[in-house]
Amino acid sequence: MENFEPVIIAFCCHYCAYTAADMAGSQRLPYPANVKIIRIPCSGKVDALHIIKAFENGADGVYVAGCLEGDCHFKNGNEKAARRITYVRNYLEEIGIESERLMMVTMSAGMGYRFAQTATEITEKIRKLGPSPIKIAIAQ
């Protein structure tokens, strides 16, 4: 595990974070290639199953990016997502994965800078945490 490059899955809501990623691109803001984006229609669509599968496959970190509080295109999907993330974090601790590896972040579609900054910060945080226990187990 020297030269550890974390793999991070970002579930991005179409109405905010996914557009913000586009915005970051048009503003020529770089962000680490470690972050792999999966587009979803609303952060409330992210299933506990998707998150767990990502870790099972060897993700070192996962985050769900939804709209700012009160701004959800579908009323309250972001609140539902936040609650689900809290639930899955507890579950991760139970099975021996650090809950810090899973995060919920919020931003608006215009926040290209915030998107790039969040992606960079999360990558650095996960890099410090090191490879996920599952990834280490897969490697052995």
Binding site: I40, P41, C42, G44, K45, V46, D47, A48, L49, H50, H73, F74, G77, K80, R84
Partner: peptide, 20 residues
């Protein structure tokens, strides 16, 4: 939005275009 899909305990609902 797909919120019902992620909540459904029986996985009986799929959101077309964003299927599990």
């Amino acid at each position: 939005c797909g919120m019902c899909v992620s909540e459904c305990p029986a996985k009986a609902i799929q959101l077309m275009q964003f299927e599990d």
